[in-house]
Simulated assay, not measured.
Amino acid sequence: MDTQVLLMHLLSGLSLSGAGNLNRFVAVDTPMTMADARQYCRSNHLDLASLGDARDLQQLRDMRSGSARWIGLSDDPATSMQTLDVYTNSWKWSFEYASEYLNFESGEPDFKTDEEVCVRMNSDGSWRDQECSSLSHFLCFSGSPSKPDYHLVREAKTWEDARDHCRFWFVDLAVIGSQEDKDHAKSKFYFLFAQLSSNAWIGLYREPWAWQDGRLSEFRHWAPGQPNNMGGNAMCVKLVPDGFICTDCSDVYPFFCSRALKQTILKIKISSDLDLTDPNVQDNILQQFGATLTNAGKTDFHLSWSVPPNNQPESAAAAVEEVCDPSSSALTSSALEISVKTTFNQSRQN
């Protein structure tokens, strides 16, 4: 059977039209605080909406383009002012060193302009947060974090440039994981600090603005002038036509949830006169499958080829996976079968 005819015959039994642009979001019109909206989404759907790219943003705009609505992006300064660990929104060392030691001066960190997420050390050994783009001298370390040897570099660099310099010439920006380390750095460089009348970068930084469902996505679409942390309490994000705006989490807005997803697997048995063990034939068939699925409206899918367990030379199986849920696992196809996974929206309450 001709390959293209075979593919069209197989796909003719599947309802593919419109299935490739499934909306994984739902709009809730009842105004709530961010905390209440999050609880509602987690109870009835999946979570507050997290956005992975511009296509997700466009879906939300198409659903409710004119109203301000909560999405699942927020910051957690209250926690991050008190803890240093590996979790999102908390302080971390550039060297990925685990420590519970913090030594911020009184009133710090203050997150001024919402951009102060890198840390400088003062001449008395205390710390303050600062914009990472600021220029400053910096403190590197050699040896190990448990037995550091500190090196003050008297060149004005941004935090990232200072980190790169330390990693090239030493180990990394300074790790100060204990009171003993602080005293060591302070005693060794006190006079130099005093002469400089300045402070120096260390390796501490923070990653603000994380998705509440834990999704790892760097997609941000801040409105002009955002985030500005107006009033010091603007730690939750609403979506408006211009983009993301940070606002007080106690404000009330309607919101977007991410849908829980139900997956259905359809399997079709095939056979062909073609030599399906030939890599060129396999690639050709997969390319034609990709084109056919795209023309049928599928936009998120993965194509792969698997040899059946009995390893018969005259047969093989192609597996097609549509990926709408990032956490979904890969399919295992059976011999002589094409497996197509289609995803349909379904709320948890249904």
Rank of each mutant, 00 (worst) to 15 (best):
V340L: 09
M63Q: 09
E207T: 12
G20R: 01
S178N: 01
G225Y: 04
P224W: 11
H45L: 05
C236L: 07
I270M: 08
Q346W: 13
E115L: 15
L135P: 13
D172F: 14
L336R: 12
H137P: 15
Y150C: 05
C41N: 07
F301K: 05
M121D: 02
V307E: 02
S134F: 14
S347W: 15
L261I: 05
R61V: 04
S328H: 02
N229T: 09
G297Y: 00
Q287L: 06
Q4G: 03
L266S: 05
G18E: 00
V320M: 01
K112N: 13
S15T: 13
A37M: 07
K262E: 05
S304K: 06
E100F: 05
K298L: 04
S90T: 15
S43A: 15
G72C: 08
L102Q: 12
A317V: 04
G125I: 12
K182Q: 05
L276Y: 09
P227L: 00
K188V: 06
R167M: 08
M121Q: 09
S306F: 04
A174Y: 13
G143Y: 09
Q212K: 14
W201N: 00
D161E: 08
K157C: 01
S271G: 04
F95K: 09
R128D: 06
D47T: 04
D76C: 04
R206F: 02
V320G: 07
V153Y: 03
F25Y: 11
Q4E: 07
G214Q: 07
S144W: 05
K238T: 08
G232V: 09
S315P: 00
P224I: 14
S67N: 08
Q82T: 06
L135V: 08
E105F: 02
S17F: 01
C257L: 02
S15C: 11
K238D: 14
S94Y: 14
V171R: 08
P77L: 08
L139C: 01
S65T: 11
L57K: 05
N229Q: 11
E337Y: 06
L135T: 14
P309V: 11
C166R: 02
L60F: 00
L6A: 01
Q312D: 09
M32W: 10
Y150P: 00
E180H: 13
W169L: 07
S328W: 03
R206L: 08
W169T: 10
V86T: 13
D2R: 00
D242I: 12
F344C: 09
A194W: 00
P313G: 02
